[in-house]
Design a protein around this nucleic acid. Structure first.
Lengths: 343, 343
DNA sequence: AGATTCAACGTTAGCGCTAACGTACGCGCA
DNA sequence: TGCGCGTACGTTAGCGCTAACGTTGAATCT
């Protein structure tokens, strides 16, 4: 048992140098010759010396911790964003503390409050909508803050995301053009996922321009296959069934697809199905879902790159908006060669 | 801008008490009257005082950090295990550092090396197979270590998981009893996911007892829908096509299901399909997959509970094995009422 | 030869907090 | 009255490291 842990002083004594030389050797900074550095490192390894990040960070008044808050790990979107950030952050020698807020802004705010106690190198938040105390606390803290997955002109600091409202609007327009006239949105209880609400608002605007109303079905659950399945069953049971169902994302859409299968409702013959994100499952689905492709991994990479630069004091674009591609799959009716004449 | 951060000393001066009283007030320990505590806390909030975890942890020689390593966040299993741990850990005032090793033991080992520099409250590793330096380093470190998702009698310290070999064996027996005679396993490149290799070993043993061989198809990719799809296409193309395909998990199995659909191969009429884990997608699939249900969330909860107890110095069972339930779905042929006579 | 420079170190004074121990004071009790 | 005891504090000495500055000696310049 390594009961008494070796400290920098012990290594210094053993190597016959000062503790500063050991410190410099370990941090890879200038001020030690390559030969002494090598000797120190070898000796330290033999002695089982483990430098204390706690002491080091305290002395430097900053840590190499990057604190990331996402609503959930179950949504592949956030797993992919985190994965996209991973390599860049790790290359920069940063460690990641991850929190899942379960779409609860109060929980996120409390977490932010706890995280600043760690003097983190940076904070990453999902989306741009937060409890009011969050921007207040972070605006004055002097640590870089990155908001991912959504965009806003009022971002706290840095921001890399997509325009959810525009994505919703574009899909709405597309569906109108395809001739759909009674759309239903199927998602989770309103107010939880603010990004999906923005997409709905965009869709509603697009349908509104064609004098069409967007019905809604909300399931009180986390975004999941099951929620989509349950929502679709409800939608199909309505007296005036929709001609197209727009789901919160591809997983809910797939749940809807299986519900239609079971109910014997043909897709896209009798009803259209639309997802969001172009998640991996869409690569094996036949028919492929009509959906919107979002660059999650790239978003993570860009966010990490921007953040690492900011940590080093280099500040470029503070707000990056990434493109969303509409994917016209086979779960909506085919485009007419000549557009349908307006009613 | 809060340029000069307020420190404990400033709060003490403002409240007219010693810094120890402020320290005690913040940590909720004995030694301050309720009235002074309240006064200190109010004052500190007004002054925007943020205690430094770095200094606190250094002084206490231990932090409230729990470091968790999982292979990937894309596999719902690990997201669920982490989620299962979350509440208990957070209740105990612990923060979680999360690493994804991408099934790379060297990467895991390097991460462990970095984590011990933080004097963490505990470490959580996935599985029981690690690079040799990991148990060496951790065995002498005196910090609780929890291994989840697999079990072993040689666990480093604490361990909560399932018996993968037994799960594979049971499924193999079941398939033999169902009358399958030419099984093929479809997974990712060998040596990456050691748990799935154990399940294969179990299956092979079961088939071996019936003098049957288990063919294998490995896809060089992460576990995914696509990998299962690609694997199934390969399997169906073989001159002697299998009568049952056993997939690494339900997601690969679903990819296989869609491949069969596209190829016009009836499931379970012409071929059987078997998954693992009983993931959420199985709740919306018709037919439901034949699979093995594993208690991921419960595993996470139990692991967290055991770990928190260990951090507090309370040590009970150090090795907990959880049950796996075989779910006979509709992607394998129905059980004969009277068992088939042996060939 | 003497001044200058620079790489390669060493010394000092904290970083902001807490463990351990000390002090003061009020209260009950014989 | 004096002793013991418990509560509510305060003082001191670090925790293990690094920033900032100081020192040394050899190489370079004039």
């Amino acid at each position: 048992m390594d009961v008494a842990t070796t400290k920098i002083e012990d290594v210094a004594a053993a190597a016959g140098v000062s503790i500063m030389s050991v410190s410099r050797a370990f941090r890879g900074v200038e001020g030690v010759s390559e030969t002494t550095r090598a000797r120190i490192l070898t000796l330290a390894a033999e002695m089982g010396y483990v430098p204390s990040r706690l002491a080091g960070s305290l002395a430097q008044a900053t840590s190499n911790l990057v604190c990331i808050s996402v609503p959930t790990l179950f949504d592949a979107v956030f797993a992919e964003i985190i994965d996209g950030m991973r390599e860049t952050l790790s290359h920069a020698g940063l460690e990641t503390i991850i929190e899942t807020s379960d779409f609860d802004l109060a929980r996120e705010a409390a977490w932010v409050e706890r995280m600043v106690e760690w003097s983190p190198a940076a904070l990453v938040l999902s989306g741009v909508d937060h409890a009011p105390e969050v921007p207040a606390r972070l605006g004055s803290a002097g640590i870089p803050v990155m908001e991912v997955w959504d965009t806003s002109s009022h971002a706290i600091d840095l921001c890399v995301g997509i325009n959810h409202r525009a994505a919703g609007y574009d899909m709405g327009r597309h569906l109108v053009e395809l001739g759909y006239r009674s759309p239903t949105y199927i998602g989770i209880t309103a107010g939880r996922d603010t990004r999906s609400e923005k997409r709905i608002a965009g869709m509603r605007a697009a349908f509104g321009e064609a004098n069409l109303a967007l019905a809604e079905i909300r399931i009180d659950a986390r975004p999941s296959f099951e929620a989509g399945h349950a929502g679709a069953i409800k939608a199909l049971a309505r007296t005036s069934a929709p001609d197209v169902m727009c789901f919160l994302n591809d997983h809910l859409a797939f749940g809807g697809l299986t519900a239609c299968d079971s109910a014997g409702v043909a897709v896209p013959g009798q009803i259209g199905i639309v997802g969001f994100n172009d998640l991996n499952i869409n690569n094996v689905l036949r028919p492929r879902l009509t959906t919107s492709s979002t660059p999650r991994t790239q978003m993570g990479q860009t966010a990490a790159l921007t953040l690492v630069a900011a940590i080093k004091g280099v500040r470029g674009d503070t707000r990056i908006v990434m493109p969303v591609d509409l994917l016209d799959g086979a779960t909506t009716r085919p485009q007419l060669t000549s557009p349908e004449p307006p009613a």
